[in-house]
Simulated scan of single mutants.
Amino acid sequence: MASRSSAPDKGPGFFSQIRSLYTFTKAEFSWLPWVLVAVVVVGIGIGVLIGFLIPPAAIWSVILWGVTGLLFGLLGAMIVLTRLSTRAMYIKLDGMPGAAGHVLSTSLGRSWVASEMPVGVNPKTQDAVYRVIGRGGVVIVGEGARGRLSRLVNDEKMKVQRVASGVPINVLYIGHGEGDVPISKLSATIKSFPKKVDRTTMAAVVKRVDSVSQSVTSLPIPKGIDPMRARAPRPR
């Protein structure tokens, strides 16, 4: 009988995650290597310059400051890589069905309650409606053609109004047209809504809305996006 190992499977290491992050981002920004090298070189240059300017300008002081500049350059390169990977992720998600659910479930933090699954779906057109509840009230997010989303959005809005009277309800549409919100600015737009609901009321609204919400798990979910693959890997 084969012995079983009790050791848990180890996840990818730090350098493996950095390599995955770099590969993911470079696929969208081919100039990424040059930017990272430039950041590191600038960091070293600043460190060496400080070493010459601070007396006594001994060789050991210049080397020490050069190493310090190298470390800050590597840190700066990591920050640039992380921010560019986020931009690359939004570029890949833009226009893909299900992208709004991925952003809402990963980018809003604890002040908002959202699900990756839509609360309303049109199986034929793959148009979907998502609902977010937070201190800023209720936000209904439409993903798809605005004209086709009218019925889904109105149904969800009426459902919320029945159980959450007086709570602000905002409607956002994902897109690049007039009045639309790009997927890259979705989370920032939602977070910008003024806080008009206290935490107790927010919790009550979540329970009330969930109690009247119809499950859509049996409906076909829009295809075209695998959130696990679309998400930019981040180093731990």
Rank of each mutant, 00 (worst) to 15 (best):
F29M: 14
G11W: 09
P56A: 01
A27H: 05
P55M: 05
W31F: 14
W34Y: 09
S61P: 06
S30P: 09
W65A: 13
F52D: 08
L21G: 13
W60S: 07
L49M: 06
P12I: 11
S61N: 08
A58M: 13
A57R: 13
L32V: 09
G43K: 01
P8T: 07
Q17K: 12
F24S: 00
Y22E: 00
F15P: 14
F29E: 08
I59G: 03
A27K: 11
L36H: 05
V37T: 06
G43I: 03
S20E: 07
D9R: 10
V41L: 04
D9P: 12
P56T: 00
T23K: 15
G43Y: 01
R19E: 14
P12F: 15
V62R: 01
L49G: 07
V41C: 02
P12K: 15
I18D: 07
E28C: 10
V42T: 05
P56L: 03
V41Q: 09
S20G: 10
L36N: 01
K10V: 11
L49V: 03
V39C: 01
A27C: 04
L32D: 11
L32I: 10
L64N: 10
S20T: 08
K26F: 04
V37Y: 09
T25S: 02
V42L: 11
K26Y: 00
Q17N: 15
G43H: 04
D9I: 15
Q17G: 07
I46T: 02
P12S: 14
P33E: 07
I54Y: 06
F14I: 06
E28I: 15
P55Y: 10
Y22V: 03
V37M: 02
G45L: 02
F15D: 15
L64E: 10
V37S: 05
S61Y: 02
S16N: 10
S16M: 14
L21H: 09
S61A: 13
K10W: 11
F52W: 07
T23Q: 12
L53C: 09
V41H: 04
A27V: 04
I54F: 06
P8F: 14
F14H: 08
E28R: 12
F14T: 09
W65F: 11
L36A: 01
I50D: 03
T25D: 07
K10I: 12
L49N: 02
F52V: 09
I63R: 01
L36E: 05
S30D: 12
G47C: 04
S20Q: 12
G13V: 09
K26M: 09
G11L: 10
Q17V: 11
G11S: 13
G43P: 06
A57T: 08
I18R: 10
A57L: 08
L32S: 07
T23M: 10
L32F: 08
L36T: 02
G47F: 00
G13D: 12
I54A: 11
I18H: 13
L32M: 12
I63L: 07
A38Y: 00
S20I: 05
F29I: 14
R19T: 11
P8W: 07
T25R: 00
F14C: 12
V39K: 06
T23W: 08
Q17F: 11
L53K: 04
A38T: 08
L32W: 04
L32Q: 14
Q17R: 14
F15S: 06
I18Q: 04
V62K: 00
P56V: 05
G47E: 01
F24R: 03
L32G: 04
L64A: 15
W34G: 15
Y22M: 02
L53V: 05
K10L: 12
G43T: 05
G13C: 13
